[in-house]
């Protein structure tokens, strides 16, 4: 059962991963080589963005390390750059920070321990909502069969024409 849930989670998260993350890596390699002064983002910088976007800036607490201008984030970026140059993979670098800062430093809870809850919850919600709908519409359709449709043919009005102004007059009578 657990494997099944994990599988669903992983396939969902893979299929839904924002394109911008990957799109960024294929951006504009097509700069012409005739103009030597044109700067292109280096492969290193792309990898840096990939890793640093998955880490949360420890002091600003809402931004990713990549987007933050805070001192710690700047130093973390420098360290990540060195680690990429030394040939470490994204996973190794993320683990390095996780081992020192805890899961707090990751932008989303890791797929381990209890944290599958937050991934399964939306699916659970969807199922519950669907069940509610099915239930509601089924009883509703039954009602309809018992009622003659032409009862309320034509204009769309409500049965509840009660108005407070008229009600108060009636109450006083």
């Amino acid at each position: 059962m657990r494997f099944l849930i994990a599988f669903v989670c992983i396939s969902l998260s893979l299929s839904l991963a924002p394109a911008s993350l990957f799109a960024a890596e294929t951006v504009k390699d097509t700069v012409s080589k005739k103009e030597p002064e044109v700067k292109v983002e280096s492969e290193l910088e792309k990898k840096l963005r990939f890793v640093a976007s998955m880490l949360r800036c420890p002091v600003c607490q809402g931004e990713s390390v990549y987007d933050s201008h805070a001192d710690v984030a700047v130093e973390m970026k420098r360290l990540i750059r060195e680690k990429i140059e030394a040939g470490e993979t994204a996973e190794e670098i993320l683990t390095y920070f996780k081992d020192r800062y805890g899961n707090f430093v990751l932008m989303e809870p890791p797929a381990e321990g209890l944290h599958w809850v937050i991934w399964v919850f939306p699916i659970f919600m969807a199922l519950l909502g669907g069940l509610f709908l099915f239930q509601n519409l089924r009883t509703g359709a039954k009602d309809l069969q018992q009622t003659k449709l032409d009862d309320f043919d034509g204009q769309e009005t409500t049965d509840d024409n009660s108005s407070e102004v008229s009600d108060i007059k009636e109450l006083r009578l």
Binding site: P58, V59, D71, V72, E75, M76, R78, L79, R100, Y101, G102
Partner: peptide, 13 residues
């Protein structure tokens, strides 16, 4: 100087 040891110890601030 660079705050590397701080990163090594997972220092937030």
């Amino acid at each position: 100087r660079q705050g590397r040891l701080a990163l090594e110890y997972g220092v937030y601030g």
